[in-house]
Simulated scan of single mutants.
Amino acid sequence: MPVSRVISEASTLERVDTSAAQSGRTAALDGRSVRRHALGVTDRSAISNEQWERMAPLVASLHRRGTRGRSDRRFVEAVVWLLRTGSPWRDLPASFGRWGSVYQRFRRWAAAGRWEALRQALGADRAVDELLLIDSTIVKAHPHAAGARSGQSSEALGRSRGGFTTKVHAVVSSGGRLVRFVLTGGQVNDVTQATRLVPGLQGRAVVGDRAYDSDEFLACIREQGMAAVIPSLANRKIQRALEARMYALRNVIERFFGRLKAFRRVATRYDKTAASYAAALALADSMIVLSGWAA
């Protein structure tokens, strides 16, 4: 047989094998599914069967209409895939459905507060006697996050030393559960949001760094029957004693922020509206809870 014909047949077989590998086959892997797309990208289904069993009844309770003609799991997995990869909406793989439909449903849920309701339902088992750790983290905003009709300041975008940024102010329990969070522009001082975060919460003490040493905030903590484990500013005439072992637990909230930023669409903000970014953050926290992570 001529060499040229052998080479031609080998090339044909290689193209057939490649086509089969890219044909959208699905295989099982640790209770997840592996999808192979035409671009050669392998996508893991973001939610295991065990996680979905816990999440499914909560998701079903968030919408009044039935699920006929649509898959809640595929929808949630699509959004989680975007959170993990940081991809644009238009690059959503076709196996998750039309990107426009997924985006519109995500926006409806964000506007209705359903992602936050899901987060709170999953984290409802927090012990009330835990410490409350308060801190903030800066998130870089992509240039595409600009341009909202309502203006940047009303969408929690601003300018800080880090450039175009958003700041996430949060309270996390000593067990590693996100209790409450607020979004502002990156230039906003931490202590200005402290009195929005703590009211109505229960715990043994509030732990924060020197940025939270404010008479108003300290009074707010005392009124709720909690202790304040916050170092005194250097210019205070009377320095407060500090419980060192409690203060050392601040590492929990720092590690929690690290977990959140493992989701690329949280680590960098692409969303124009604060509602959409808050929804992404809420879903990321839900996935952390489902993963079983705890401090």
Rank of each mutant, 00 (worst) to 15 (best):
P2V: 07
V3Y: 02
S4V: 15
V6D: 12
V6G: 14
S8L: 14
A10L: 13
T12S: 12
R15I: 00
V16Y: 02
D17I: 11
T18G: 13
Q22S: 14
G24T: 01
R25P: 00
L29C: 11
D30N: 15
V34R: 14
H37R: 15
L39K: 12
L39F: 06
V41I: 15
V41Y: 12
D43V: 15
S48H: 05
E50G: 08
Q51C: 06
Q51R: 06
W52M: 02
R54N: 03
R54M: 07
V59R: 08
S61F: 04
L62I: 06
L62W: 01
G66M: 05
G66K: 08
T67S: 08
T67C: 04
R68P: 01
G69T: 01
G69I: 01
R70F: 12
R74P: 00
E77P: 01
E77R: 03
A78F: 05
W81K: 14
L83H: 06
S87Q: 11
R90W: 03
D91C: 14
D91M: 13
A94I: 05
G97C: 04
G97A: 09
R98Y: 04
W99P: 05
Q104R: 12
R105F: 05
R107Q: 09
R107G: 07
R108P: 01
A110D: 04
A110C: 09
R114C: 11
E116V: 13
E116N: 13
A117F: 02
A117K: 13
A117G: 05
Q120P: 01
Q120N: 15
A121F: 03
G123C: 10
A127Y: 00
E130L: 11
L131A: 13
L131V: 05
I134K: 10
D135W: 05
A141M: 04
P143Y: 01
H144M: 07
A146P: 00
G147D: 02
A148H: 12
Q152M: 09
R159T: 10
T165C: 10
T165L: 06
T165R: 05
T166W: 00
H169W: 08
H169M: 11
V171K: 10
S174V: 06
G175P: 02
R177N: 07
L178V: 07
V179I: 14
L183H: 01
G186L: 08
Q187N: 15
N189R: 12
V191F: 03
L197K: 04
G200T: 08
L201Y: 05
A205L: 06
G208L: 07
S214C: 04
E216C: 08
L218R: 15
A219K: 15
C220K: 14
C220I: 10
I221S: 14
E223V: 10
M226W: 04
V229N: 04
I230D: 01
A234S: 08
I238V: 12
Q239M: 05
Q239F: 00
R240M: 03
A241I: 04
A244W: 01
A244S: 11
R245Y: 03
R245K: 13
Y247I: 09
R250M: 10
N251W: 11
I253F: 08
R255M: 11
R255E: 09
F256M: 09
R259A: 07
K261F: 02
K261Q: 11
R264K: 15
R265T: 08
V266C: 14
T268M: 12
T268D: 02
Y270G: 11
D271V: 07
A275W: 01
A279T: 08
A280I: 11
A282K: 06
M287Q: 09
M287N: 07
L290M: 09
W293T: 07
